[in-house]
Design a protein around this nucleic acid. Sequence first.
DNA 1: TGCCGTGACTGTACGGTGTAAAGTTTCAGC
DNA 2: GCTGAAACTTTACACCGTACAGTCACGGCA
Lengths: 229, 229
Amino acid sequence: MTTRTTQPAIRVPLSRELILQTALRLADQGGLESLSMRKLGQELGVEAMALYYHFANKDKVLDGIVDLVFGEIETPSVGPDWRTAMRRRGISLRDVLLRHRWAIGLMESRLNPGPANLGHHDAMIGSLRSAGFDMAMAAHAYSLLDSYIYGFALTKMNLPFETTTDIAAMAETMLEPFPPGEYPNLSAFITEHAMKPGYDYADEFEIGLDVILEGIERIETQPQEPPRP
Amino acid sequence: MTTRTTQPAIRVPLSRELILQTALRLADQGGLESLSMRKLGQELGVEAMALYYHFANKDKVLDGIVDLVFGEIETPSVGPDWRTAMRRRGISLRDVLLRHRWAIGLMESRLNPGPANLGHHDAMIGSLRSAGFDMAMAAHAYSLLDSYIYGFALTKMNLPFETTTDIAAMAETMLEPFPPGEYPNLSAFITEHAMKPGYDYADEFEIGLDVILEGIERIETQPQEPPRP
DNA sequence: TGCCGTGACTGTACGGTGTAAAGTTTCAGC
DNA sequence: GCTGAAACTTTACACCGTACAGTCACGGCA
């Protein structure tokens, strides 16, 4: 009585790539908390411990899928038009982060960054430098842009609504435990702004991105002038 | 043979406030993963299940300590000088987030925001409106500022170094698995910029914040003009 | 052909997690 | 002193990451 009841001997052996692709899919489908070693093994038709032959621990798996995510970000072009390059790359990064919301808190905290991660950082610095930024200005621009983009993705991450109808319901639920009139500005914001037809918080992203690009251009072309008179 | 070996009957009963203060301390000391119901109970001299008399589940405890964190943020002043108000409040928020790094991912995703949370949002909108911003502009400014501030705290959250010496060691460790010259721009950035004495990534925050405030002022005072010629 | 080492995977176990459900203690008010 | 509710404990379950030992297939070699 052997135990190989199905798929007699045709089983495809595991590989790092297959494991990572499956892990990425699991995380995308159900979030980080649904990516356990047991579920991952089950998805691959294997016991959880089999994964430990290919990865030292779960954190190495996370390292791997985070680097897959980094690989999805559009590489900024090299050349004088840094503003277009940064704008395209910024929108790409936002798209990637919203596609893999579970990754937002992990991207910038890896102790073992993978090649896609390092390569992307390298390309960003190279792009800004090729446009004439000195190292300090490149650092300012990079920090400002990525703080904004990651922050936007983070604050949008768990917004539990997609439509203005959802917003109304959610806002009502949130304010319900409190006496009416307790938060007049917030109430006005919801009724006068967030519930207006056609409102989409996602539109805020490019507005803010352009303000930042404009601001970078100003301090880049007039580096001596202090911003506050 | 009773089990009350120590502290015979003087035990202070639990309260929501005491539980939340203890939970906040635990999270501050060891991060979110060290805040378990058992450890929290143990810290209070009580079994874990005792906490469920006061809170429906762990998420309600998180709701509570997140609202404590919101309570630490400086309320923006009302009046025409929105730029000073937003600058002070922004720095205060950054300080709070760096004091409670575990909270960064939780602040904007609460389904049951507490009074401090809602009150702060209300005060922010009120401050911007009192300075003359219409609702749409207030939304733009608020989104831009908080995306940047939360994003800065997020990307700085797990930077595993505090000194330039740490940076050098960390960078070497990260680049070690790859052939030298693989990431020339990144290497140049590290040696020419990040390892310079006196470098502190934290300084980037106010630089970026001022660029954003300047940008908001420009689109607020010249709302018709498209930013890109 | 037989053996054996190694690569790939499984089985079992341990200490941890959140929490449902039931049991126990403590104490205020009558 | 009795009663009932408040406050807390006990036990249990399903899940988690992973240490450690066992098992199985198979390629190279005698």
